[in-house]
Amino acid sequence: MRPARAVANLLTLLAAGLWLFPYLWMVSTSLRPLSEIVAGELSFWPRAPTVEAYREVARTLPLLRQLAVTSAAAVAIALSQIAFALPAGYALAKLEFTGRRLVFGLVLACLLIPGQATFVPVFTLLARARLVNTFPALVLPFAVSAFGTFLVRQAMLAVPDSVLEAARLDGAGEITILTRILAPMVRPTLVSLFLLSFVFHWNDYFWPLVATTDDTWRTLPLGVALFREQGTGVRWHLVMAANVILSLPALALFSVAQRHLLRAVAGSVK
């Protein structure tokens, strides 16, 4: 018992160091003046703490615009996925029709197709439609989520048929059943879907990189990566200041909705 407990404690300590130090070092770097970066200062506390790096990042990067584009795209995608998944999940879970198995098979198959396998043809598709570097280009490819459809279908399977029958006897139409009865009942699933989808697309780098060509629709992750690419050289305090701005919203959302996000991830495994 005792050696096992000691190993567990050691691992806990090691994990705390390995996963906290990088964040703390990022913040500490962002509060240094250039001279301390050049000198390769290794003390944890900046000798002359300053927010100059944040000021300069705010002067150089169109932060507000990129924040707005990123949030708008992530919210639009998450809401659209819910709007499509509700009726589709309902049909797959509760309605009898020919071809249901086929459609469900399609949804499952799409679950296994990642964006990395489709980005070349999707890009040429959007190029033909002259949609590259537009807001729809950021949103459209993700308007429907196979994963979300699957999640909602699973949640609706758990709703007893007697509830629907009672509503139909009361003269409720399909739309009313879906929006007034089923949607509130699967609310936790919808919140999970929203959170997972929002975080994923807020953080996404790959697709916005492919779909945009200039600053008009560049998202924040893209903007910050590009900022570094365009030659910040040794000025790592600027990159880390930009990085704090980029990671803070995701970390804040995580700390607020942690229980829900963890349940969503664990639930998607079950």
Partner: peptide, 22 residues
């Protein structure tokens, strides 16, 4: 500590990549 370890999964790849580059 559990949250700290899992947080890396929640922040963006760009954040993690830039952090480790530094």
């Amino acid at each position: 500590v559990r949250s700290a370890v899992f947080s890396a999964y929640v922040v963006s790849w760009v954040s993690v990549a830039l952090l480790w580059m530094w």
